[in-house]
């Protein structure tokens, strides 16, 4: 962004300089002119080279892999190394190269209820936990944005767990929710319950794990929006006789919608494919597609089926990802 502006300034100054040149004829070219010449030279030489470095890396290791996954999803499981059938063959009778695409994986995905149920249940679990995360995160983000003195301390307190291991944070809840874990012991000793509650191995534990590990992803975008909220709007609303909850509902909430959308998508999209949380905290009946993909790959060693599962998951996630990009672009434009 800034660069284009520099260019415009540069060109204008240059024109002025040329005009000056003809009028006053300075002996040597000005610093700006020299800069301009070397920049033009550098840009011709170096610009595309600079851009090409990250571009090549990402095309090779991010874009092409999806094509490979798609290709493998159209092949059959085979007893070879790698355990997939080859799409290209050689028909020696007719001397023809043959291309055989196997659609059986997708057919099986559609016909076997396990997969469809797993997709739907992943989306359901991700959606519910996104809503809970939003409800937990909003007051925290609002408090941080409104506090003057302790703002950075509170912000650091929120981010600190994010720097510690994800796996260990999920693990911490295993000890907490266990049948003879901390929560059950406290509730038992207080006499609230007579028998330990079965919490681990339920969807409830999965929700807690997701909210716990993804909370910062929700708090940070909300905080960024709420921090910029003009306080005079709140005062104006109060002066006009709005009760605090009305101000919140009609002023704060609508203004924070971009943050809500960004935060929700940052939680929802990765949670749909979550593997660790349902495996450690969920039960055998917690059906999530990330777990299904893992089992297809590691347990059944069915690479084509795992690829088909991944491709369909991607199709489900393309729209939310595009919305997220749109929201982030708009935010960035506003910043500049």
């Amino acid at each position: 962004m800034g660069n284009t502006r520099v260019f415009v300034v540069g060109i204008r100054r240059l024109r002025g300089a040329k005009l000056m040149n003809t009028l006053t004829r300075p002996v040597r070219p000005s610093a700006l002119e020299r800069w301009w010449q070397s920049t033009v030279h550098f840009l011709r030489q170096g610009r595309h080279f600079v851009i090409a470095i990250p571009m090549t890396w990402l095309v090779l290791f991010f874009l092409i892999p999806f094509a490979v996954v798609f290709k493998i999803s159209l092949s059959e499981k085979a007893l070879s190394i790698p355990p997939v059938s080859s799409l290209w063959g050689w028909n020696s009778e007719d001397a023809m190269v043959t291309l055989s695409l196997y659609l059986g994986n997708y057919k099986f995905l559609w016909e076997d209820n396990l997969y469809l149920d797993a997709y739907l249940s992943s989306i359901k679990i991700a959606a519910i936990s996104t809503v809970i995360t939003l409800l937990v995160a909003y007051p925290i983000a609002y408090l941080i944005a409104r506090s003057k003195k302790y703002r950075y301390v509170l912000l650091a307190l929120v981010i600190l767990p994010f720097w510690t291991s994800f796996l260990l944070r999920v693990y911490a809840w295993m000890g907490f929710l266990n049948k003879n874990g901390v929560i059950n012991n406290i509730l038992l000793s207080l006499g609230i319950i007579d028998e330990p509650l079965n919490m681990i191995g339920t969807n409830f534990a999965v929700y807690i794990g997701v909210v716990y590990t993804y909370l910062p992803f929700m708090i940070l975008p909300l905080y960024t929006i709420l921090e910029k909220l003009d306080e005079s709007l709140l005062e104006a609303s109060a002066d006009l006789g709005a009760k605090p909850y009305e101000t919140f509902l009609h002023v704060v909430l609508p203004l924070s919608i971009p943050g809500i959308i960004a935060g929700s998508l940052l939680v929802f999209i990765p949670v749909v494919g979550e593997f660790v949380i349902p495996t450690l905290l969920g039960g055998s009946d917690t059906l999530m597609i990330g777990r299904v993909l893992w089992d297809e790959f590691f347990t059944n060693r069915d690479w084509p089926m795992a690829s088909a599962v991944a491709i369909v998951m991607l199709v489900f996630l393309v729209i939310p990802m595009m919305v997220l990009r749109r929201v982030q672009d708009v935010r960035q434009e506003r910043n500049t």
Binding site: L63, F66, L265, L266, G273, A306, A310, M321
Partner: peptide, 21 residues
Amino acid sequence: GMVTSPMVMPDVIIGLSLLLL
């Protein structure tokens, strides 16, 4: 687009696709 999507892309997809690559 390529720079930011790995941030939200589920890990299982990134892992599987890179292994197959």
